[in-house]
Design a protein around this nucleic acid. Structure first.
Lengths: 232, 232
DNA sequence: CGAACACTTGAACCTAATCAATGAGTGTGG
DNA sequence: CCACACTCATTGATTAGGTTCAAGTGTTCG
């Protein structure tokens, strides 16, 4: 039982599309709401996989660290999205770390509970399969991108993904998009390049008017130009 | 209605684990068996997504081609595995091409039929979610690998994945593994490098006794050594 | 036998990683 | 409020890893 009222965002969440009020209520009552501060870890790579989550508020990044200590950002979660759902199926440890990049709130269910919910409400299963399918395709495209594209193209791809996530609604005057709040290192982790390369590339683009940059912040001023760069 | 008897491999197929005889029969009767010659296309990237498949016999590779014409191999399917299942969920066109590398046989269901089967037999849904989850994790690891590892490590990774697939049963005398029948170009597509780099790398390894090479063929003679190389 | 194909190898070139030094913004405590 | 330390970012110089081009060898097949 949670001390929060049923959050509106949950009814719009991907995995719960098409569910009736009573189903949504069952889902809501079966989970716990959890709060995280900026930079707090939701869970850590290698920990036993206990819960899966739907994000209600804030943003969470998913980071994978390999044996050599190099990190790679495999995802960026926005409100309404499910994460760590892989944990509920087969995997016994979390394959990545989840870190809140802003103060965030999420609902969590134990893997067991989540499986039961799917059994009780088959619509959830269908939605989760859809989501997993889309993410699998995304991830494969991303792998192909890492393998075949230049570092400049990969950085463009990373920025475009972030920008599109942030402002699903078209920008105010069709010109400027919301600034993205990430460090150069974060962009490097997303695009599979180094900090220095990202810095240089962004400077070049800024001179050409494609983006404007600041500390911990990038604004895409010419999405179409960036897209053309990405396409080659 | 198929002109084939119920194939034993189907009962062992990942997506059909834990199903009763009558369920298996329903699944079998709902699909069509299809045969493919070596190098024949099962479906082509961009085609409208109509069917998903379980491979019964042979091997199928999944290739993604980007706008610039560079190709990247996203998967290698062995008997008992499901493929194109993403097609059944949301996607309207195949995101990759599937090509039989040997004479192959598969069962196919239309997306609609497959959805109905999942509704009738919830176990299939659970299995598919498990499979999708595992593949998502694999694909993410692969993306991270492409982003952070050297070309030598990526080639080692590709060979190890292939070798393990081929001989789940340990090799005869614990020393030699079955030769893998792929071209240098295929290895390049899997590891995100070029044909020349693959050739050079394999030659170096052959001199060191890690592998033996021939036309359209690679045998891993020292899997552990290759693994150490992969780990760095 | 000739043609097509798969592969190897040397050499030139180029991208991007790395090293090193510096600058700019943020936050803390005296 | 300023000085200090700290984190984040820029930029030049250097270098290594890998791609690409070019030429040549060995195999398979009609």
């Amino acid at each position: 039982m949670s001390r929060w009222e049923f959050p509106a965002i949950l009814a719009e969440a991907q995995p719960l599309q098409g569910l009736g009020t009573e189903s949504l209520d069952d889902v809501w009552r079966s989970g716990q709401t959890l709060e995280f501060q900026a930079n707090e870890e939701v869970f850590s790579q290698g920990d036993p996989a206990e819960r899966c989550y739907v994000l209600l508020e804030g943003h969470v990044k998913l980071l994978q660290v390999n044996a050599e200590g190099e990190q790679f950002m495999i995802g960026f979660i926005t409100p309404g999205e499910i994460f760590a759902c892989v944990a509920a199926f087969g995997e016994d440890v979390y394959p990545a770390s989840a870190i809140a990049v802003q103060p965030s709130r999420a609902v969590g269910w134990t893997c067991e509970t989540f499986r039961e919910l799917i059994a009780r409400h088959p619509g959830i299963g269908r939605n989760v399969m859809d989501t997993l399918g889309q993410r699998l395709q995304n991830s494969r495209e991303r792998a192909a991108e890492m393998a075949t594209k230049s570092s400049e193209q990969r950085i463009a791809g990373a920025l475009l993904r972030l920008a599109r996530r942030r402002s699903d609604r078209p920008a105010k005057n069709g010109e400027l998009m919301e600034p993205i709040r990430v460090s150069r290192q974060d962009i490097a982790s997303m695009s599979g390049t180094g900090l220095y390369t990202v810095s240089r590339t962004l400077q070049t683009w800024a001179r050409r008017g494609l983006v404007t940059v600041a500390r911990q912040q990038v604004s895409v001023t010419d999405p179409d130009g960036l897209q053309r760069l990405f396409d080659g």
